[in-house]
Nucleic acid binder design. Sequence first.
RNA 1: CGGGGUGUAGCUCAGCUUGGUUUAGAGCGCGUGCCUUGGGAGCACGAGGUCCGCGGUUCAAAUCCGCGCACCCCGACCA
Length: 596
Amino acid sequence: MRYSKAFIYTLKENPSDTTSLSHSLLIRGCYIYQHASGIYNFLPLGFRVLSKIWKIIQEEMDKIGAQELLMPALHTSNLWLKTNRYYTMDNVLFKFKDKKGVDMLLGPTHEEIITDIVAHFVKSYKNLPLLLYQIQVKFRDELRPKGGLIRGREFIMKDLYSFHASLECLDKTYNDVYKAYTNIFERLNLPFEVVEAHSGAIGGDVSHEFMLITPNGEDKFIKCMNCGYTASTEIAKINKPSFSYSYKPIDLKILEEKHLIHTPNTSTIEALVKHLNKTEKDFVKSILYKDNENNFYLVLIRGDKEVNEIKLNKYLGKEVFLADESDFKSNNWVLGYIGPVNLNNRHKIKIIADYSIVNLKDIIVGANKKDYHFINLSFENLEVNEFADISVATDNDECFRCSGKYKVYQALELGHIFKLGTKYSEALQAYFMDENNKLKPIIMGCYGIGVSRLVSAIVEAYSLENSITWTFNSAPYKIHIITINTDDKIQFEKSLNLYNELISKGIEVLWDDRKESAGVKFKDWELLGIPFLVVIGNKIKDNMVELKFNPNFYKTLKNEIFEKIANYQNLSVEYNQIALIVNDIIEFLNKNINLK
RNA sequence: CGGGGUGUAGCUCAGCUUGGUUUAGAGCGCGUGCCUUGGGAGCACGAGGUCCGCGGUUCAAAUCCGCGCACCCCGACCA
């Protein structure tokens, strides 16, 4: 492509409404253009990058025997009513009526549709396993879109679904996909961690997320510094401390005389910390939950920690919700000052303590009296019914496997794989006949990659403030040529020849043939992020040109691979050799990055 | 959905507090010409505006008031 004809309009300044690196650079480099909140155009450059990622995913899907299809993005409500997700996913669904008044929605994911297809055609174990996937636009009316392509309301996803006659078969495919995802991210040179994850609205028991560590991500996971265990903070288990608890009640009179203190307007931990000049860890928070049958649960947790409702629900075996003001009123509990000592209507509440309060001494809790707290209590003075692991894992929590310390990482979710089981096949009656003539629900798995999100993930992974760094396989062009002075006949003609020669070798080239000053061209090269640059300037008179690498390109490659080409960066080479050298570098990288 | 912020040229922003010398501006970008060509050059001329929208106050509104809308950020939520 000749730059003078290309649809590239770069910006010198950061757009005013971007905060993340990838969002800003993708707009400045003319890769994307915003249509509305969370909705973006992929401009020609951006679409080239997207297409490259797209193709690699297709290749790896093909390798594990998955067949590509294309489902509609426009759905009627009927299948969604059968799984009840018409209501349970309501917060992200784009819903509307067609002209006949039929309830319609834009597909946020395709479990319903694919299961319906498979239910229609597949009747026998002889047709299983079956792997079907598509790469398609998805619609989710996110409450808060974020960071450009990082979280959009319209985005492109690869969704693969697998169908099996047995759990063993599902396990095998799950592992195949795990490997395929590893290949995809390695070919894109995207660093990632695989973490155990929560399956959320999709459902199922086992799931793993593929995460890129980056401050602009929107998820957190923990990693054990000792054994390497990784898990989303949504589910990460924490080691049970060794302790013995025997309830030691304090006489009411002593309690009032020695432990009760006046703490006006301190219904939050933050206010208390200030008022009493203590740290968060000196408090035990009491949080009231209730279930659908109006049973109450008071959860105790150390002041600096947070309740993990996913773990709490799992522990209780049912879904619980924060109690509201009316619950407090009708039971004579004091909102903001509820606590596990001297509590009214005690028989109505089960008190569950997180392990984080174990062995605490000299702690402060709500006194069940407006504007009062108890101080100087030990954890054995609290009326605990049960101890459990129900907190969100944080730095320095102990690993439940090896007692090592956890570290928390901010991360961006690149892919997510799930063992679904029969949730959808039962709801949509996808049954098959097994070899004993028995009718059974098909066992399913589903596996997603945020294809458009990967574009910004790659930018997040390596880029500098004014310079994108594409990885070898994601770059829109492999080679960028700058002709310093296009009015110079020799420079221009030699550039044109090189450009044509590289193209004839099948190499993707962007040739900056504009009548711009050298500085403009160098800055644009850096911004656009193409890995290799050939500069043709004055020295062409001596038959010499230069080869440069994108400033961060070395970071995208494993050391041993980069070492093989490192000698070529910032090198003056003879014009006659440059095409050969470029070709060698590209062939070498092609071979070594796409090995598997 | 709660909290905060922003909205003036293609982009980044000034002007708004205290309404009227601003005939709505600057830099960048864009067009033409000259000049220049190894790190976002220079000079000259030029094009480009629903000051987010609607309503109100006023002799007079980009500026003050009200109601909307859009976008961004934090939180909540979320493959």
